Amino acid sequence: MSNLAQLLKESWVLVEEEHDQVAGYLYARMFLSEPSLRQLFPVHMDGQRHRLIEAVVAAVGSIDDPEQFAGYLQSLGRAHRKFQVQPAYYSIFATSFVAALRTVAGDRWTIEYDQAWADALDLLTTNMITGARSDPEPAFWHAEVLSHERRGPDVAVLTCRPLQYPLEYQAGQYVSVEAPRYAPRSWRTYSIANAPRPDNVLEFHVRAAVGGWVSSALVRRVRPGDLLRVAAPMGTMVLDRDSPRDIVCLAGGIGFAPVKALIDELTRFNRSRWVHVYLGGRSRDDLYDLSQLKQLATGYPWLNVVPCCTDDPTWSGEHGTVPEVLARYGPWNEHDFFVSGSAGMVRSSLRALAGLDVPAERIRYDSFGEV
């Protein structure tokens, strides 16, 4: 570990338990320094405070891997164009962040920590600005909602289409979505649930989370004809068409969306690779797209579907979590894996795959907080 990384780690330990105070001081300092910054943020800031701190800590955590550090931050810079962030704002953020750390840490803070964070944030903002300037695509697309179907009290499947020009993406990627009429300036990430189509239609699966302004709006308020904003695609959970290995997809809840997109793409060219889908939920109601998935399996002999539930005594299929059910079959160390679901589901799946001797380089995954 480099000296810079060591100083960052040591100093963050001093304030980690008080990260709410760090966030509060950070935003107060930024908005006092530049009042116009407030209009870039949502009215309700509770979730935003945590996400920003987590993103910064995650970014500086990779500072000893220059390629990963630069790639992640340049991608983040491109994504931040949707917030209309100007280059000058980054220096205000960096100065405010260091001041917040210094204030919360108090006498435990040193001049060495101060300089380490100043250097790290300078690298962070430089890479984000570079990424934002290098992207020729628009910051976001306006998209009209075409259909909206409720799949239970808290889940909806909706389709939309960009108005001006197509959004180019790969099956398995995700985008940030805003519903400006109902939750302005609040963006949340959702996977596109279909492979690219000639008509440019995008499908999204959304679960309304408790306190989730965007997810609740998309499930309960959005209607056909409404306009959404959709930002540039991100994510690496995409197919390797050159791989000869069979495929295993592990999905929980609305984490099925990118898996559905991968299956959609595979229906267009796959002839030789078996595809096993393990789809899990607490009850049958969580398997909201199971009937469509079974229809696909009927039409494509290479597709095998194994649904499972953890807390449904009336369920006649497999019982247990997705990793538990997966472990009953196999061996799996010669397959390519795709994992998508909540953060907890992804963590437990990755631990299970490690225990089954699946090489890490054969696993691609995304996780979602569903807010």
Rank of each mutant, 00 (worst) to 15 (best):
Ala143His: 07
Arg161Glu: 11
Val358Phe: 09
Ala99Asp: 14
Ser215Pro: 04
Arg108Asp: 13
Gly172Ser: 09
Gly255Thr: 01
Arg351Cys: 12
Ala132Glu: 09
Gln115Asp: 14
Gln39Asn: 12
Asp286His: 00
Thr314Met: 07
Asn194Tyr: 07
Tyr90Glu: 07
Lys260Leu: 13
Asn333Ser: 14
Val104Pro: 05
Met237Gly: 02
His44Trp: 11
Glu318Met: 00
Phe256Arg: 00
Ala59Gln: 06
Gly252Tyr: 00
Glu10Gln: 15
Pro244Lys: 02
Arg221His: 14
Asn3Gly: 12
His335Pro: 01
Lys260Tyr: 11
Ser272Asp: 15
Ile129Thr: 10
Tyr365Ser: 10
Tyr27Ser: 02
Gly61Gln: 05
Glu34Gly: 02
Met128Leu: 07
Asp107Gln: 13
Gly253Gln: 00
Leu37Glu: 01
Gln68Trp: 11
Arg150His: 10
Gly330Asn: 03
Tyr72Glu: 13
Ser291Thr: 13
Val305Asp: 03
Arg161Thr: 08
Gly211Leu: 07
Glu168Gly: 12
Asn127Gly: 10
Leu228Glu: 03
Ile192Asn: 08
Trp109Tyr: 10
Val371Ser: 12
Ala118Leu: 15
Thr310Leu: 02
Val157Lys: 03
Gln115Ile: 14
Pro138Gly: 06
Met1Cys: 09
Ala193Gln: 05
His80Ala: 03
Thr110Ile: 08
Pro180Tyr: 04
Arg108Glu: 13
Gly252Phe: 00
Thr236Pro: 07
Asp240Phe: 09
Phe69Met: 05
Val222Cys: 11
Thr126Ile: 09
Ile254Val: 15
Lys9Val: 10
His205Val: 01
Phe31His: 09
Val104Ser: 05
Glu361Thr: 10
Cys308Leu: 06
Phe69Tyr: 14
Ser2Trp: 08
Tyr288Pro: 00
Phe97Leu: 15
Ser75Gln: 15
Thr314Asp: 11
Pro166Glu: 13
Arg51Tyr: 07
Asp135Thr: 04
Phe93Pro: 02
Leu250Ala: 06
Ser340Arg: 01
Ala118Gly: 10
Pro66Gly: 04
Lys9Tyr: 12
Arg271Thr: 15
Ala79Val: 08
Leu123Asp: 07
Ala94Asp: 08
Val248Pro: 07
Gly299Phe: 08
Asp119His: 11
Val210Tyr: 13
Arg351Asn: 14
Asn304His: 15
Val98Ile: 08
Asp226Tyr: 05
Pro307His: 01
Leu353Pro: 09
Asp357Val: 05
Ala94Leu: 06
Ile263Gly: 02
Ala28Phe: 09
Ala5Trp: 04
Gly152Pro: 00
Val277Asp: 00
Gln6Ser: 15
Arg161Cys: 11
Arg150Ala: 13
Gly61Lys: 05
Pro153Trp: 00
Leu40Asn: 10
Ile53Gly: 04
Leu146Glu: 13
Tyr278Leu: 08
Thr159Gly: 11
Arg81Trp: 08
Gln48Tyr: 09
Val275Leu: 09
Arg38Ile: 06
Trp12Asp: 04
Ser186Cys: 12
Tyr329Ala: 13
Tyr365Phe: 15
Ile247Asn: 08
His50Leu: 14
Asp289Thr: 07
Arg268Ile: 01
Glu203Tyr: 07
Val56Gln: 07
Ser147Lys: 12
Thr310Asn: 01
Val230Gln: 12
Tyr72Lys: 13
Ala94His: 02
Phe368Asp: 01
Gln292Leu: 14
